[in-house]
Amino acid sequence: MLDDRARMEAAKKEKVEQILAEFQLQEEDLKKVMRRMQKEMDRGLRLETHEEASVKMLPTYVRSTPEGSEVGDFLSLDLGGTNFRVMLVKVGEGEEGQWSVKTKHQMYSIPEDAMTGTAEMLFDYISECISDFLDKHQMKHKKLPLGFTFSFPVRHEDIDKGILLNWTKGFKASGAEGNNVVGLLRDAIKRRGDFEMDVVAMVNDTVATMISCYYEDHQCEVGMIVGTGCNACYMEEMQNVELVEGDEGRMCVNTEWGAFGDSGELDEFLLEYDRLVDESSANPGQQLYEKLIGGKYMGELVRLVLLRLVDENLLFHGEASEQLRTRGAFETRFVSQVESDTGDRKQIYNILSTLGLRPSTTDCDIVRRACESVSTRAAHMCSAGLAGVINRMRESRSEDVMRITVGVDGSVYKLHPSFKERFHASVRRLTPSCEITFIESEEGSGRGAALVSAVACKKACMLGQ
């Protein structure tokens, strides 16, 4: 009897593995994704193909990295998701002549009506938060230079001027797309009239992360975010950046690689679950690469896999709870928690219980395998993109072996128990001629924006502006 049951459990697990095998990517698959990513990057950089390229390769006008001589107080704003952060950054000489960066910050959550109302409502709310922060720190009387981390696709015309191309991540505030974001912020500050600010720089969160990590390690020339969304930036040779005049030196390019796949480059790798996630998203047909990796989508992918296993009578005796059938019910943090389970399955059992399920031991094991399959594919897909960037940098610099540091931020990278190990191992397999160091950014977005502002202020002083 026991043997029969054991055989049935083994057969069930084997069927589960057959279904989950769809998520496995072979090294040849990853090399294919990497080569296609490089081709799209090239198209994004070139003037004649930029418009139709899915990977936009947006110039950021960040050319210099901090040298350690900029000092002063800077205000930093960070808008990239449902939370908005205001930070005071003091850049100065530390002990023994070292450079020191001290920060104080406060988080504000953005109400739904500000995210989806008008641009005026959104930026009025942001300036209200700045006003509140300055009151708390008794700094209303000071006109501070301000660095703005704005983590949406922007076409820069200068370091302090950028046109919002399109909202992502659930934002829909009308009247912002096609307009200068810094102008919208300046107008809102003017409307309030109770404080003055000098907006000197606007950067993407990947750029802010790279600059913040450069402060720790001067070989950091790539910034990457794996959180709600997924994106990367890197220092490109100016001669390859056709959208900006000049051939000397390097400029940081914001790849906006989340949109890779929007022209069909990933079609052969998309599964039924991916198509369902895409169809029910706020932007169907867009940001397809990001939807395979980002935390906004990972939990939902797992939920759809679990429903398939229920329908195949391989999980929960073929019956799903009402909660499990509800879109968004299986949160991405559950994926991390399930994979963090120590082996007694308590954590998995508790999560499934909150979803109205009474799982068996085998159910718990199957749910864990589903989570591992989805998150491992995410790590491997992400590795193909980064390997594409790094191999490109090595080739354009004609280096036999390139040493490089990548600064990384984002909740999936930082909080998932195995993502970074799987990701690092896969990147290294795909970049055999590179020695890569990964560092995690601390308060990256805010500190990085302030350091970019410090560079901009120093330049302005040198130019006598």
Rank of each mutant, 00 (worst) to 15 (best):
G356N: 10
C230L: 07
M393H: 11
E245I: 09
V207T: 09
V71D: 15
H317F: 14
E40V: 04
S441Q: 05
G97P: 15
T405I: 07
V222T: 05
V310P: 07
K142A: 05
G264W: 08
V367Y: 05
L288C: 13
L122C: 04
P66E: 06
F419D: 02
K39R: 13
F150Q: 05
R377E: 01
E440P: 06
I159T: 05
D400A: 14
H424F: 07
K143W: 09
S373P: 04
I126T: 05
Y61W: 04
V253P: 01
I436D: 00
L79G: 03
Y108M: 02
E312I: 11
L271C: 13
S76Q: 03
N350R: 13
G343R: 05
G178L: 08
L75P: 07
L270A: 15
S131V: 03
G94L: 13
D278Y: 03
D344Y: 05
S174Q: 07
T103W: 06
K172T: 07
E421D: 08
K291F: 00
G94M: 13
C371F: 00
V335L: 13
G229M: 00
V401S: 10
S336G: 06
E339P: 05
E236A: 07
M298G: 11
T82H: 03
S212W: 09
F330A: 09
M402K: 04
M462D: 15
D73P: 08
D135R: 12
Q287D: 04
K39H: 11
R377G: 03
E216M: 14
S373I: 11
I163Q: 00
G227H: 02
D341V: 08
G318V: 13
A460H: 15
T431R: 04
I366Q: 10
E177I: 15
Y125V: 04
S340H: 11
P284Q: 07
E312P: 06
D400S: 12
S263Q: 15
V389E: 04
I126H: 03
D78Y: 07
Y234R: 02
M462S: 12
E95A: 10
L352D: 05
R63N: 15
L146F: 07
R308C: 11
V199H: 00
R43V: 13
L324H: 05
H105A: 10
D3R: 13
T255A: 08
A208N: 07
V338C: 07
G97N: 03
M402E: 13
E279K: 15
T103R: 05
K140R: 09
E93D: 11
A176S: 06
I439M: 15
H218E: 12
Y215K: 04
I126A: 04
G72F: 00
I351V: 10
P417E: 07
S396N: 12
P66A: 14
T405N: 14
A173L: 02
E40I: 10
M298R: 01
E237T: 00
G147P: 06
H50V: 03
Y413W: 09
C434Q: 04
S340D: 11
I159C: 01
P111F: 05
E27V: 12
A208I: 11
L304I: 02
R368H: 12
V310K: 15
C371R: 05
